[in-house]
Amino acid sequence: MIKLVEASAGYHARRRFASGSREDENIISNISLSFERGAVSSIIGLNGSGKSTLAKLACGLIAASSGDVLIDGVEISSIKRRKLAQMVSYLPQAQSYANVPIEVLVMHGRFPHLGYPRVYREIDRQIAKKAMDDMDIWELREKSLNEVSGGERQKAYFAMAMAQCTDAVFLDEPATFLDAPHQLDVIDHAKRLRAENKAVVMVSHDLNAALECSDMVALMNRGRLMAFSPPNDILSSGLIEKTFGVEIVEFRNVCGDVHYAFKRRQLY
């Protein structure tokens, strides 16, 4: 659905007078991959490796300084912002949150679907209610964002992205601030979105979650895409050990589910 072809980007990737070069200011360079419908893709990598930049580039929040970003074959920069917001939603990382009630925030997820004079309809209210029910925050709907915990705030933003009803959903570290049961909920939500034939892209620090629930994993290192493969291929390639400098220990629980533990590589 979303295809990147040798795309590069950065936040100040514009030519500085005559002498500067765009290459110097790119945070990510020459990325080629595609995020498909009905699949969960995870972007993993060390801090500062360009994971969020890749997500923002793929959903059109920042422009490519070179290369192409295509949605269903159409160049993303040629799609109007409102139309794009009907196709792609983005849950930002560590939002600077506004002081609004949760129900109002979630309703704003319907904004791209409204015509003038931007008045919410009954259908918008029903979709927002379902998103709040799904995220288990219906009881908190009247509370303001500064009256709830970080995790509840994160769920409210997640519900806003759900209410946007897009074919592609980008989740930039969706499990941040969430306790263990709610982290598992996020994985369940991602799987549910996959079952609805949406393209789900998660930027994640949680390697276990990324390896367990993803169909494809993009491994980033210093702005370069090291691999974009199914989790098993990534694990067997040894690239995770090399990139993160850890050893991976695989174990199974009584149900036979595979989990991974990571320990620092011994330097002797």
Binding site: C59, L61, R81, R82, K83, L84, A85, Q86, V88, S89, Y90, P92, Q95, S96, Y97, A98, V100, L105, H108, G109, F111, P112, Y157, M160, Q164
Partner: peptide, 11 residues
């Protein structure tokens, strides 16, 4: 008023 990133992603 939701902030620049959220407003942009909402179109």
């Amino acid at each position: 008023s939701l902030g620049e990133v959220s407003a942009t992603s909402l179109g």
